[in-house]
């Protein structure tokens, strides 16, 4: 079973890379952009076949390693 996770920076955490990307986009003519926030994406293949169990396990992974909850939020977006 494949599960995907998106890690994003919390709202009040400064994202200088996102800011620079925003500026670059603006320079390229994408002038409607209001903000860019950079994050991380993981695809995790697990032997677990029970979607609920697999999701719970990935949630543990997020809390213990994949995300740092002081600055990041995680979202498990896909179980298939």
């Amino acid at each position: 079973m494949k599960i995907s996770v998106i890690i994003t920076l919390k709202k009040d955490v400064l994202d200088p890379q996102g800011k620079v990307i925003h500026q670059a986009l603006d320079g390229m003519g994408f002038n409607d952009v209001e903000e860019v926030r950079q994050g991380k994406y993981f695809e995790i293949n697990t032997k677990e076949t029970n979607p609920k169990k697999a999701k719970d396990e990935v949630e543990e992974m997020c809390k213990k390693l994949l995300a740092n909850l002081v600055i990041e939020n995680y979202k498990i977006i896909d179980a298939q």
Partner: peptide, 16 residues
């Protein structure tokens, strides 16, 4: 900071 022995985190330097 990643072990939690001291609080907080260390982010990328402000001016990259």
């Amino acid at each position: 900071v990643e072990t939690g022995l001291v609080p907080g985190v260390l982010l990328r330097n402000k001016y990259l």
